[in-house]
């Protein structure tokens, strides 16, 4: 049950979308508590960005309200709102010649005078924000020469310089490689630890499952909210992706591609450390591993001798030996065609 007062962000019968087209979310209630990290999940085009923009008061809702810190967001004067909530958009087009320091200093706008003069206190906040995301050495570097991951950290630093208790981020890990994704989410998690409330949209469920306190899942114009494990238990993710080419493995909390099984194969289990890798290679080429030899079209035995691993494949009357999983997989792909 929601207790509205506890929520720092609260959606109250909110409907939002674009004029003239179908609403993307309709009549939804959801909340973010103080100090929570909430991942907003949904398929492409489900309305994640629109919802975030509506919460950030950049877009008017079609119905219902968004309350931020117990006030309707559109009723809060812009300069006050900018001290309460900061927003990091997805993607960016950094300006030539703009340094990390200058870009982060744009976050001080709600606090500076008519000319945007940076005083001592502003400077300290800017340096603190740059330091928090680990970009001190890039302080005077032009932003357009940074990598995608570094640039995203700078954009987060800009939001931090805004000194708000709430951070909204639209796909902060888009276009990033795996280590960078983890770095960015770790930074957000540290902010959560520091007491900030974070709502971010993402397609990257694995990091969301590892770090988020709660998920908002947009499905069929509604929001289902809950702890990651609760939603997994209720098969929310399975239902969300039921029409796509991936399956959600509820035990492992990860996605696996849907592949038609080509044939069944017997993998002789022993104590070799390569068994797991072998099983993985067999699944990749669409074999289903079975425990009975009689149902299988071939048999695979992993042999280890003098630290050398070989794979023996028995197919009909033929026995072939391979020195790598790559060669074994190639052979098995061919015999099954």
């Amino acid at each position: 049950m929601h207790k509205q007062a506890e929520h720092i962000i609260s959606l109250n019968k909110l409907t939002c979308g674009y004029h003239g087209s179908k609403n993307l979310v309709s009549d939804v209630n959801a909340g973010v508590r103080k100090g929570e990290m909430v991942a907003l999940i949904g398929k492409n085009g489900s309305g994640k960005s629109t919802l975030l923009r509506t919460i950030a008061a950049l877009k008017k809702p079609s119905g219902g309200t968004v309350t931020v810190d117990n006030q309707v967001n559109s009723m809060i004067p812009p300069y006050k709102f900018a001290r309460l909530l900061s927003f990091v958009e997805s993607g960016s087009s950094p300006i030539e010649n703009l340094t990390v320091y200058e870009l982060v200093s744009l976050g001080r706008h709600p606090y500076t005078n008519w000319w945007g003069r940076i005083k001592g206190e502003d400077h300290n906040k800017i340096m603190e924000a740059i330091g928090f995301v680990g970009m001190e050495v890039f302080r005077d570097a032009p932003v357009n020469r940074l990598s995608d991951g570094e640039r995203q950290r700078v954009m987060i630093a800009r939001a931090l310089a805004q000194e708000t208790s709430i951070l909204l981020l639209d796909e902060p890990t888009a276009f990033l490689d795996l280590p960078n994704k983890f770095e960015i989410i770790s930074v957000l998690y540290q902010l959560r630890e520091a007491g900030k409330s974070i709502l971010y949209s993402t397609h990257d469920l694995e990091t969301a499952f590892l770090f988020a306190d709660k998920c908002w899942v947009i499905n069929d114009r509604k929001i289902i909210e809950g702890g990651v494990e609760d939603l997994g238990k209720q098969q929310v993710f399975t239902k969300l992706f039921k029409d796509s080419r991936v399956l959600f493995d509820e035990k492992e909390m990860k996605f696996i591609p849907k592949r038609p099984v080509k044939a069944e194969i017997y993998l002789k289990v022993n104590d070799s450390s390569s068994i797991q890798w072998t099983a993985r290679a067999l699944e990749r080429i669409s074999y289903q591993i079975v425990s009975e030899k009689k149902d299988a079209i071939a048999e695979v035995i992993v042999q280890e001798q003098d630290k050398e691993t070989t794979w023996v494949v028995k197919f009909k009357e033929n026995t072939s030996v391979f020195n790598s999983l790559y060669d074994m997989a190639r052979y098995l792909s061919q015999i099954n065609q």
């Binding site: 008061a57 950049l58 900061s86 744009l106 008519w114 000319w115 805004q162």
Partner: peptide, 22 residues
């Protein structure tokens, strides 16, 4: 008088709005 506002608008109008610029 527009210098501060334009500075905020360098990153786009939505960014400018999100830092409190009219």
């Amino acid at each position: 008088l527009t210098v501060k506002g334009l500075n905020g608008m360098m990153l786009g109008e939505e960014y400018a709005s999100s830092v409190g610029i009219n």
